[in-house]
Design a protein around this nucleic acid. Structure first.
Lengths: 333, 333
DNA sequence: GACCCAACTGCAACCAGTTGCAATAATCTG
DNA sequence: CAGATTATTGCAACTGGTTGCAGTTGGGTC
């Protein structure tokens, strides 16, 4: 069926090794045999079987890409950048959808069976232990968008969520807000926790600031909207905040519509600052003030790191946190 | 390094074949040996190497998933459904990002090198010839969201874009609009062409209807907004349409903001109907009337079809078009 | 023309599995 | 209990490539 090394060798009148060598660069082949082989290969439409060669070389050039969030549009850019970045280096992404239902151990087993060269976990909600299980299995792994910690035993690249929380707090304080709140994503996501911590800690420097905290059930529009509706409904029994730091832009947009539905105005009645700077944030009808994380840089670093670890397996774990910036638009007074 | 069949065989005191057989179901192994093997395998943490076995079985259980649009949020749902659907059947998606820069022939070559069992092309913009090149290479292929045509030599599952265009036309006529327009995506996308054709053809039944057509440069918010801005700017020199059928929701939302920015109101001044029913369309602040395509059904069918074609390679090409429905919201009067 | 060295080539073993076949063991039948 | 079946088992060859090693070739030098 498929044309193999042997077919090419026969047609070119050389040994199988010769054919193999013309297709592996750095191998020693004379221009004459190379020409013969290339001619035969072209005539037969031969392409070396990457999987067969992986058997002996021990490299498949496949990288497992694990994702567990398919709600947030930001992840689309992540997909685009990851796939492109891997392809540019001759690597192939083997995609794993780690939805709630799937057993983490199963994905580990599966990726081992397919002998991927490395794994990239792209998630801000998975616990550090998840990526660790790959490292423990001897698989190079990088956790992108994970919780960066000096002591982390696995590579993590992402942002400093604590610093982001502080940035948001400072931005609100700078604008004179004092009664502020954090509207986070799922409470057990490390990113949510760190953003809350950073936010609240930074506020301690402002004795007159009062802060409250609540959590949406997911990083999604609906969850943000529902949570904001709940918050507004309990006013005035409980005085609402003047401004919210939302743990994600999607949450912020959900909150925004809830606020507008309640007949209030942003930023006149309620201020909002999001996080991520997703595409939609800059749409004229939204104009969300937000904190931008440099995803392209993060993804570049993640790929570079996993590639490097494949070559140098006992490379010490690295923690790279990229700086974020506040993008001022129109949802803060 | 990794634990192999041989290691397990030695530890269990049986032949390599016995080990292989306990891991392939349907093979004949006595309960006694099976127990010995499973014990040894568990002790060593053995998992069969899927790639090595693919060498002899000829099946890798990998499916190439080709995507060329990372702008539209809809594709996220597509990713989610595809990966889940494949995983549920024990298949793995090997993702290919076919951005403008990449040579289609290169992805074909690459997928052949990795000997994927089949290929799913998920794109409404790639020409039919693209999927065909896989079929010609003997690779089972299904074009999802492609142009369905009775005569198509490759499997296509998707929607009847011509019928969708007609549906949009009818919806506008029903509401009493007469000066209408099609605002399409990239002009060379088959989906754009078919939607335009269906739209214009259906309007022929309404002698008093006047239609115009224009194209945005991409299926994106910015392109939709820019095109609508251009259209509004040339009024009143040229009387603008009362209602637009936008070739995609994202386009419609872009157009919507352009209209609002111009001080006009939707649906009072301009009516809009989109296509796709993306998540955002139902957001309260958007409320886009649109045409929904049943993506879950389409993806299910695409997977079923590719799996079936892997088992029965000479299965005749099938064309499955799924019915769409108009979702009435608030952008038509 | 003999000699040396480097470049090239093919052999054969190996990667981690699968599988047809023949041999052996277990079970059934009368 | 012999004979006939049927179920297991291991051998060995095979999947499509890679690579260490030893032998061959060719060009250059003296």
């Amino acid at each position: 069926m498929a044309v193999t090394l042997r077919d090419v060798a026969e047609r070119a009148g050389v040994s199988r090794s010769a054919v193999s060598r013309t297709f592996t660069d750095g191998a020693s082949v004379s221009p004459k045999t190379r020409a013969k082989v290339e001619m035969a290969a072209a005539a037969l439409g031969y392409a070396p079987n990457a999987l067969a060669s992986s058997l002996t070389t021990g490299r498949t050039k496949m990288i497992g890409l694990i994702v567990n969030n398919f709600q947030n549009p930001l992840i689309l850019a992540v997909f685009d950048l990851f796939t492109r970045g891997l392809q540019d280096r001759g690597l192939r992404p083997l995609l794993v959808n780690l939805s709630d239902a799937t057993d983490p151990a199963a994905s580990l087993r599966m990726l081992r069976q397919y002998s991927v060269d490395g794994v990239i976990v792209a998630s801000s909600t998975l616990p550090p232990s998840f990526a660790l299980s790959f490292k423990d299995a001897g698989l190079p792994v990088v956790h992108a968008f994970g919780r960066a910690r000096a002591a982390s035993p696995v590579h993590v690249v992402g942002i400093d969520n604590i610093a982001c929380g502080a940035m948001a707090a400072e931005a609100l304080m700078r604008r004179g807000y004092r009664r502020v709140a954090f509207l986070g994503g799922p409470q057990d996501a490390t990113s949510t926790q760190d953003r809350a911590t950073g936010f609240l800690d930074a506020l301690r420097a402002y004795p007159d600031a009062v802060a409250s905290v609540s959590y949406a059930s997911a990083y999604s529009f609906d969850a943000g909207r529902a949570e904001m509706q709940r918050l507004l409904a309990q006013a005035p029994a409980q005085t609402p905040a003047e401004a919210y730091f939302c743990g994600d832009d999607l949450l912020a947009v959900g909150a925004l519509t809830a606020i507008q539905d309640a007949g209030l105005s942003v930023p006149d009645d309620v201020g909002l600052i999001g996080l991520n700077d997703m595409d939609m944030a800059r749409w004229p009808n939204i104009g969300l003030t937000t904190i931008r994380q440099p995803i392209a840089a993060i993804i570049d670093a993640a790929i570079a790191l996993v590639v490097d670890t494949i070559e140098t397996p006992d490379r010490p774990a690295e923690n790279r946190m990229f700086p974020c910036e506040v993008i001022e638009r129109r949802t803060l007074r």
